[in-house]
Amino acid sequence: MATITKIPFTTTSHRRRGTAQEEKPRILQAVVEAVIAFDKLQTLPRLRLQAIVSFLIFVSFIAGVSAMLLFMESQIGLVGREVLSLNSEMMNIRHDNENLMTQLSQLNSAKLLRQRALEDGFELIDPANVTYIYVPGFTGKPPIDLSESVPAGSETRLDPAYTESLLSVFIRTISQASAPLTDL
């Protein structure tokens, strides 16, 4: 344990501006106080210091995890809103498609098409005037096929964001936050 040397000082030192000779003891006093504080710090038990540091690390970890959970929660909320919005958009598009298909069929209805053809100068053919030509291999119109063919590679794929680990999210978030603005 270090010895403490008491240095007397006047109580009026802070009330009036002292001379250069008077300033010297005050500086000395501050240095001595700092030394004392450092000495006290030095005197703290190592275990106590470790506890404080551990506590700080724990708090930082909790804060980090909480921040990440909040971040995730906000992302889920945003995605949820996007799902709602996309679903609504999908319904609207579906309705629009149905409307357009029906309108197209109305414009192509048998009566309208024939009326337009007659207006454009076409005539209904007299069966006696039909000329038949034999085309080898032609077996008539094929039956209509309304099956939906799914193009290769158009299968539904899950976004990687839904399968990555918590650590991956953390790293990605940190790297995004620390990226230069030009990269964002």
Partner: peptide, 11 residues
């Protein structure tokens, strides 16, 4: 039989 719509849906 030729794929012309006879009944559909509309909003």
């Amino acid at each position: 039989r030729n794929g012309n719509m006879l009944a559909g849906n509309e909003t």
